[in-house]
């Protein structure tokens, strides 16, 4: 299938409404020596197939925790959550998602190529296939030619791209990204955002993306989830209708500014509740 065909298919596809992540009345309380900490409370959310969902909110609002619950890295203490119709634990066992952390978390003793093939190795995929897929994934993030380099020989932005390639290598339909570009400078971040959008438009993956940057959230998403802290909860869900293929110029349009304004209002309201 050529790239053009892929793009056409995506364009023709009806807005599919299969829920990938279904969360109902979810809560999570950490028991600490200083008493319980209510990290998440009464969270209801549906992420549909092909969605690009951003979680935005001040630090401590539980956006990362919510992503970790989806990934089965934390267990919810109340409510229901299903991923592709099964429990998060089952979904993790099925390798249903790729997770990109805040830091690249590349293993320093492995070359970039062998870092990208790490999940494939664990999934016991043949060596030939592993290398083929690693090269494809590295090409998607424009890192071809760096296969034999070691992580510490690459810049921070390149390392984060390699970690995205690693999450893409086993072709999971769901991509969970926890502030992947948080530590990068604005220029690199803009570039990687563009690349990520292209990738998403091309592959029709479902993406859950944690950020604390309003422009980043509005630019990338089809759905913006605004959260507020103590207890972590959802205070607004904003749907956007920008085309799937978009460029950085849309950040100057009135629609964009209007949505950004609504997000900011939401965040402010969440904060005033807190005080």
């Amino acid at each position: 299938m050529t790239l053009k065909q892929v793009v056409n298919n995506v364009a023709e596809m009806p807005a599919s409404k299969n829920a990938v992540v279904d969360i109902k009345n979810l809560s999570l309380t950490f028991q600490t020596a200083d008493g319980p900490v209510y990290a998440l409370s009464d969270v209801d959310l549906t992420i549909n197939e092909g969605d690009f969902v951003s979680f935005i909110g001040p630090s401590g609002c539980g956006k990362t925790t919510l992503l970790r619950v989806i990934a089965d890295l934390e267990k919810a203490t109340g409510g229901d959550i299903s991923i592709n119709g099964v429990s998060p634990e089952q979904a993790r066992e099925n390798r249903a998602y790729g997770y990109v952390f805040q830091a690249p978390a590349l293993l320093p003793w492995r070359s970039i190529e062998r870092n990208v093939t790490l999940p494939l190795e664990i999934m016991e995929i043949s060596k030939e296939e592993r290398i083929k897929r690693a090269h494809e994934a590295l090409k998607l993030v424009e890192l071809n030619g760096f296969e034999k380099k070691f992580p510490w020989q690459l810049s921070g932005g390149m390392q984060q791209r390699a970690s995205i390639a690693r999450a893409l290598s086993f072709d999971a339909d769901l991509l969970l990204m926890d502030e992947p570009f948080g530590a990068l400078d604005e220029i690199v971040r803009d570039h990687l955002n563009e690349q990520l959008l292209k990738l998403w438009a091309r592959t029709n993956k479902t993406v859950a993306f944690v950020t604390h940057s309003i422009p980043e959230a509005v630019y990338l998403s089809t759905k913006i989830v605004v959260m507020s802290p103590r207890p972590g909860r959802i205070i607004d869900v904003i749907e956007t209708d920008f085309p799937r293929e978009r460029n950085l110029d849309i950040r100057e349009t009135p629609e964009f500014l209007e949505i950004a304004h609504r997000v900011r209002e939401g965040l402010r309201a969440g904060h005033s509740n807190d005080e």
Binding site: L73, R92, E93, N94, R95, P119
Partner: peptide
């Protein structure tokens, strides 16, 4: 955590 996400 990374290894856990691969169900390693």
């Amino acid at each position: 955590d990374l290894m856990a996400t691969y169900a390693s």
